[in-house]
Amino acid sequence: MASGAILRHDELPPDTILVRIDGRTVTEQLAIDHAAMMSQAIDDLRAQYPRRGDPSGLLADTFTVL
């Protein structure tokens, strides 16, 4: 992945286009190799979480674990 940013959903710009992910697979057709880049980004993000509780600060002060 060339670069990336991790944001909470309430920090996204209003014109952000969201893409559905199923596991680590992008379920929509994307240009060129963007689906592969998204899969790599998903793997990278998920690899960070077992090592550190919330390394990207995505959780609010109060949250529910189901």
Rank of each mutant, 00 (worst) to 15 (best):
M1I: 10
D15I: 11
P14H: 14
A60R: 12
A5Q: 15
T25G: 00
T25K: 06
A5N: 00
A2Q: 13
I42Y: 04
P50C: 08
T16F: 07
V65S: 04
S56F: 09
A2D: 08
S56Y: 14
D44C: 02
A35N: 06
A60M: 03
I21G: 00
E28I: 01
D43M: 00
P13T: 02
I17H: 00
L45N: 06
I6R: 04
L30G: 06
T27Y: 07
D10M: 05
D15N: 03
R24S: 04
P50A: 15
L12F: 06
I6N: 14
R24M: 10
A36Y: 14
P55V: 13
I21D: 02
A41C: 08
F63C: 11
I6E: 08
L58Y: 12
G4K: 07
T27A: 10
R8C: 12
A36E: 03
G57W: 14
T16A: 11
P14S: 05
I21S: 04
V26H: 04
L66N: 07
A35R: 08
T62H: 06
V19C: 00
S3H: 15
Q48C: 13
R51N: 13
I17R: 01
A2S: 03
T62K: 01
D22M: 02
L30I: 11
R46I: 01
P55L: 05
R51S: 13
L59M: 10
R51E: 08
R20V: 05
D54C: 10
D10T: 09
Q48Y: 05
P13Q: 08
I21N: 00
L59G: 01
D44L: 15
I42D: 09
T62Q: 04
S3C: 15
D61M: 03
D22H: 07
D33P: 05
R24I: 14
P55A: 12
L7N: 09
D44K: 05
D33N: 08
I6A: 15
T27C: 12
D61Q: 15
I42K: 00
L18F: 13
D44Q: 09
H9N: 02
R8G: 04
R24Y: 07
L59P: 02
E11H: 13
R46M: 13
I21C: 00
G53T: 14
L66G: 06
A31C: 05
A35M: 02
G23V: 11
P55S: 06
V65N: 03
M37L: 06
A41H: 05
